[in-house]
Design a protein around this nucleic acid. Sequence first.
RNA 1: GGGGUUGUAGCUCAAUUGGUUAGAGCAUCGGACUGUCGAUCCGAAGGUUGCGGGUUCGAGUCCCGUCAACCUCGCCA
Length: 599
Amino acid sequence: MLKRTVNCGELRSEHEGQEVVLNGWVQSYRDHGGVVFIDLRDRYGLTQVVFDPSGDAAMHHLARALRTEWVIGVKGKVRHRAEGMENPKMVTGTIEVEALQLEVFNKALTPPFEIDSTEPVNEELRLRYRYIDLRCKYMQRIMDVRNKATNIIRQHHQDHGFYEIETPILGKSTPEGARDFLVPSRLAAGSFYALPQSPQLFKQMLMVGGMDRYLQIVKCFRDEDARADRQVEFTQVDVEMSFIEMDDIISVTEEGFAKVWKGVLGVDIPLPIPRMSYADAIRDYGIDRPDMRFEMLLKDVTDIAGASDFKVFTSVAKSPNGMVKGLCAPGAGTYSRSDIEKGLTDFVGGYGAKGLAWFKVTKAEDSDQAQLTSSIAKFFSDEQKAELIERFGANIGDLILMVASDADTVNKSLAALRCKLGSDLGLAKQDDWRFVWVVDFPMVEFNTDENRWDSLHHPFTAPVPEDIPLLDSDPGKVRSLAYDIVLNGNEMGGGSVRIHQPELQAKVFDILGITKEMAQERFGFFVKALSYGAPPHGGIAWGLDRCVMMLCGIDNIRDAIAFPKTQRGQCLLTEAPNVVDESQLEELHIEIRREGPED
RNA sequence: GGGGUUGUAGCUCAAUUGGUUAGAGCAUCGGACUGUCGAUCCGAAGGUUGCGGGUUCGAGUCCCGUCAACCUCGCCA
């Protein structure tokens, strides 16, 4: 085999005269009848190889037969390109390799799509031929970023004394949280393993086991519907530390993020990363993952709206959980009525908002004062309108948008609207990195459907110590020692200080409606572990795939993963999941029930 | 489970109100060409319009169903 001595991206003028061997794929060939040019590609770059007709006749004949994506080895001599022949678009464009020997390692079928095509290629096709897609610069860059990021993360945690420890993939199913992927057991008929939604309990037990500091870059599985930023199978940077308080985890983590941003993008992230309470985030942004790149804060105007003559507002303001809130979109006063109705009202409608009230902030005819123009302006007194302008800090040319509904719908729809406007109005810049920690989460929230309290984070999250007395009287008021790290409106990770005393853990289970029997059956092993000397501990998990998305400026999680699944959890490359042999099912004690038309 | 977008040549797209033989660029194949680098020039081949029904004299186009991919609500402790 003509084994490479250099890669396709490294030759420069200073290598002139050297005899080298290159290996790679034929990116393109240009046959001039006499001289033949080949651009040879590998992960490192492109190098032009020249086959001169004055050379070996058999080799020249073979060179003319080369086609794109054939895999070859070439021995040749590096030479400086003649004046005017350099290609400034190529890193190796000042040189070329004059071929002396050619070996075809493998021919290739015509690829189903062009490598590095200038036109976007259908994603379904890319996934079906992922091994070809991965040859493209686009994917190679993402894999490079992903590799760099994981290396930095590993090194960072090594430097802080973390052990990298693996936890089981075949685990125990717990009905809380997301739907589990189940794996049938052959040896225990009728029993199933579950794939981990995260290694949560194992990492806590590693702390009980005295491992002190744990890191794992690990696959997690959640059988829920995918999204642009969500895969059923994803990678978490999983971290746990002993004998720490919240600030210790936060500081190790933010230092890690800063190192990644510095190492991959060369960007300095100022530390410490600012913190915001959950309550403030909901109040100002309507969501627990605020995009801090622009202002356009939400303002509660229930009081003003309730005092108006606009029935929609007054009835909502009077209802128990009713809220009228809005935002002021700078410069959006140019939006037409149909821009608003088709572009914005329909948009918030998707989040349950029944309507979207709007005011254009215009210049009064008789003065330089701002005034409000709207079909509903007549329901507001001049004082009320002035109050609205003041509350929103509105300027002439702005557009005020308001939603009236229950608090949850108002916040959800306005949060989404705010992000949409931030992007539509060009306020959210891609290379602006605004990290924020969201802290002081409520420990539990009331689930009206099930009529019980649910964990906001998970049942092992410790309450804020001074809120512990409220556990019995007013669980909804109890804050937890949980924290999410948010970047530009994306949740990049989250964690908490854990409960390390079995009594407190039992109490929290009780509040969550998990009976002693249920707790014993599901988490007995874990509560037992807490009873054998569990250190104070806590941790965090980062979403590595999202981290890569942000670093690469892509908005699709599939591109951040070498072999991703579709929205329906299919692998288009291998065609998993697939029907298996009857004999395999038999060994697993499984019988497939054919679903009837009613199912 | 709900809402939406898309599906036409290998790829990216076009095709007027339902109307002749479904076109173009790129790729492919053949030929020409000794300096190109998105090579160029000449020529050729390439179609179950996702699939199945229906309406119609006539369907890529309209209707019904279905499949897939994507976006999204719910869901994701």
